[in-house]
């Protein structure tokens, strides 16, 4: 009896050693998968800087940042990024004016008011709206929304940032709504009970307890939404036009950074020309813009995160 016990203990010990070693090996494998994310980020930064260095050998950083013309494909090539940035910001502005209010209200409605069954049915359908390929939204913007807007403003050009911005806004509503709703639902039940027990209505509980409690998630939702609008490519490439245009008027056509990259990629410029390499410089600016947004979002999230 005693002997049996000892044997078992030894066996268990040996197998424990094996199990612990296996655990360590698996941990290393898992870690290396995690490092892919780090590698990707480093590679993005490296490639953008490396490839655009050729561009910056020919164009000074000062011209790039201050020149008000962007005409790399013309004989008289000018390389001022400002028109592309203004186009990007204008489209984004229109988009978030649609997406943030609509997304937030829909999220509050779904999370706090909608009957359970309605929520469970509607939420996945709403997510489909965000899953529609962006090229399809581009088609929609160019061939459905713009003609509709032209009925209101007959002077609206066929390519314009308003239509692209509205459609991008609609496109990111599900992202904003879905992430916000998840965040609000993560607010624990006892928090809501605390509020209801004080005699709060649903709307009061939603606005005063759930929304603040889900603040980090909401901030993340908005940042993710804005970031998507800034980086959205196909809708603008199809519906907003390809001409760089320094304006903040959404009823005008203008190229965004992303639309420009698409235009060059589709063209037949030789790969070693400055024109072609300019897409890396434009991409660098785009990445820095989204990076700033993401960093702000990250710190907002961390600052306001509440541990439940």
């Amino acid at each position: 009896m005693t002997q049996g016990k000892t044997q078992m203990a030894q066996g268990a010990f040996a197998s424990l050693h094996y199990r612990k070693t296996r655990d360590r090996i698996i941990e290393a494998i898992l870690l290396s998968a995690g490092l892919v994310a780090v590698f990707t980020t480093v590679a993005i930064v490296f490639i953008l800087f490396y490839e655009s260095s050729y561009f910056f050998e020919h164009v000074s950083v000062k011209d790039f940042l201050t020149d008000t013309m962007w005409t790399p494909l013309f004989a008289d090539a000018r390389y001022g990024i400002l028109p592309l940035v203004s186009g990007t910001l204008t489209v984004t502005g229109v988009a978030i004016l649609v997406a943030i209010p609509v997304g937030t209200i829909v999220a509050i409605y779904l999370s706090e008011f909608a009957p359970h069954r309605l929520r469970e049915t509607v939420k996945p359908v709403l997510e489909l709206l965000g899953a529609v390929p962006t090229v399809v939204y581009g088609y929609f913007a160019l061939l459905a929304v713009t003609p509709l807007l032209q009925k209101v403003w007959p002077d609206l050009p066929g390519f314009n940032m308003l239509s692209a911005g509205l459609v991008i806004g609609l496109m990111i509503v599900p992202y904003v709504a879905s992430v916000s709703e998840d965040a609000m639902r993560a607010v624990p039940k006892y928090m809501r009970e605390g509020s209801y027990a004080m005699g709060a209505t649903k709307l009061q509980t939603a606005l005063r307890v759930v929304v603040p409690g889900a603040f980090s998630g909401l901030a993340a939702a908005y940042i993710l939404g804005i970031s998507r609008a800034v980086g959205e490519t196909m809708v603008v490439a199809i519906a907003a036009g390809m001409m760089a245009n320094l304006t903040f008027n959404p009823t005008e056509p203008a190229a965004t950074i992303t639309a420009y990259i698409v235009q060059v990629s589709l063209g037949d410029l030789p790969h070693d020309s400055i024109g072609y390499q300019s897409i890396f410089a434009a991409g660098l600016v785009l990445m820095l813009m989204t990076l700033v947004l993401n960093v702000i979002g990250f710190f907002l999230t961390r600052r306001f995160r509440e541990a439940y």
Binding site: G34, A37, L224, R228, G231, F280, F298
Partner: peptide
């Protein structure tokens, strides 16, 4: 690593295209 994953989720898809082109 966490910051990287969060950040990558927000990187525009066209940037991945530039990464792939360069890399």
């Amino acid at each position: 690593i966490e910051i990287n994953v969060t950040n990558l989720a927000g990187v525009p898809s066209i940037i991945y295209g530039l990464l792939a082109l360069g890399l």
